[in-house]
Amino acid sequence: MKHDSSPLAMTVPRLAMSLTKVAIALDVSPTSVMQMVEEGLLPRPRVWRRRKLWRVAEIDAALAEWPTDGEQQGEDGEPGRWDAE
């Protein structure tokens, strides 16, 4: 897909991102993103046909639940785990 740098494209909010873009946004590899999903630290992607997309709002909500540096772990000994429920 070609990157659109038109003024309109720059004002349209991004609602969802591909695996590659999530990895870039988090400054990690796509493999690390998938590990975070499997560990429950990030939500699973939404699926349309064969395309997988992560909602930006869900990524943001998940990150807000992560512990900050120096914060104690939860009662179960695990850092904050993201859960849509």
Rank of each mutant, 00 (worst) to 15 (best):
Ala57Val: 10
Val28Lys: 03
Lys52Gly: 00
Asp4Pro: 00
Asp83Lys: 14
Ala25Leu: 07
Leu15Met: 13
Gly70Arg: 14
Val37Gly: 02
Asp27Met: 05
Leu53His: 07
Arg55Val: 01
Glu38Asn: 11
Arg46Pro: 01
Thr31His: 07
Gly80His: 06
Gly40His: 07
Ala61Asp: 14
Ile59Cys: 05
Ser18Asn: 13
Thr68Asn: 08
Lys52Asp: 08
Gln35Glu: 01
Leu63His: 03
Leu41Gly: 06
Glu85Gly: 14
Asp69Pro: 02
Ile24Asn: 08
Met1Glu: 07
Glu85Tyr: 10
Glu85Phe: 10
Thr68Lys: 09
Gln35Val: 04
Asp83Tyr: 12
Gly80Leu: 12
Thr68His: 07
Asp69Thr: 09
Glu85Met: 09
Met10Gly: 00
Pro13Met: 15
Thr20Ala: 15
Arg51His: 13
Pro30Met: 10
Val37Leu: 03
Thr11Leu: 15
Val47Pro: 05
Arg46Ser: 12
Ala23Gln: 09
Met36Gly: 00
Gly74Glu: 14
Leu15Cys: 03
Pro67Phe: 00
Gly80Lys: 05
Pro43Ser: 06
Arg14Gln: 12
Met34Ser: 03
Met10Ala: 14
Val28Cys: 15
Leu19Gly: 01
Trp66Glu: 02
Trp66Thr: 07
Thr31Glu: 07
Trp82Arg: 04
Ile24Leu: 10
Val37Pro: 05
Asp4Met: 06
Gln35Tyr: 07
Leu41Val: 00
Arg44Gln: 08
Asp83Gly: 11
Gln72Lys: 05
Gly80Val: 05
Leu53Gln: 10
Trp48Glu: 13
Glu71Ile: 02
Glu71Thr: 06
Trp82Ser: 03
Met36Ala: 03
Gln72Trp: 06
Asp60Ala: 13
Ala23His: 09
Ile59Asp: 02
Val12Tyr: 09
Ala64Glu: 14
Thr68Ala: 13
Arg81Trp: 05
Asp69Val: 11
Leu63Thr: 04
Ala61Cys: 10
Trp66Met: 04
Arg46Glu: 12
Gln73Trp: 13
Trp82Gln: 04
Arg44Gly: 01
Glu71Tyr: 03
Glu85Lys: 15
Val12Arg: 15
Thr11Pro: 02
Leu42Ile: 02
His3Met: 12
Met34Tyr: 01
Pro43Gly: 03
Leu42His: 00
Leu26Gly: 01
Gly70Val: 10
Val56Ser: 01
His3Val: 14
Pro43His: 03
Arg14Pro: 04
Pro13Asn: 12
Gly40Leu: 09
Glu65Met: 12
Val47His: 04
Ala64Trp: 01
Leu42Phe: 02
Gly40Ser: 05
Lys2Gln: 08
Gly77Gln: 12
Ala57Gln: 12
Trp54Cys: 02
Leu41Cys: 08
Leu41Asn: 09
Leu8Glu: 11
Arg46Gly: 08
Glu39Ala: 10
Leu53Phe: 11
Arg46His: 06
Arg44Lys: 15
Trp48Tyr: 15
Gln72Met: 08
Val12Cys: 10
Ala61Val: 10
Glu39Phe: 08
Thr68Leu: 11
Glu38Trp: 00
Trp48Cys: 09
Trp82Lys: 04
Pro13Asp: 11
Arg46Tyr: 01
Glu65Gln: 09
Met36Cys: 03
Ser32Met: 11
Leu42Met: 01
Pro45Gly: 04
Thr31Arg: 07
Ser18Lys: 11
Arg49His: 09
Asp76Val: 14
Ala61His: 04
Pro13Val: 13
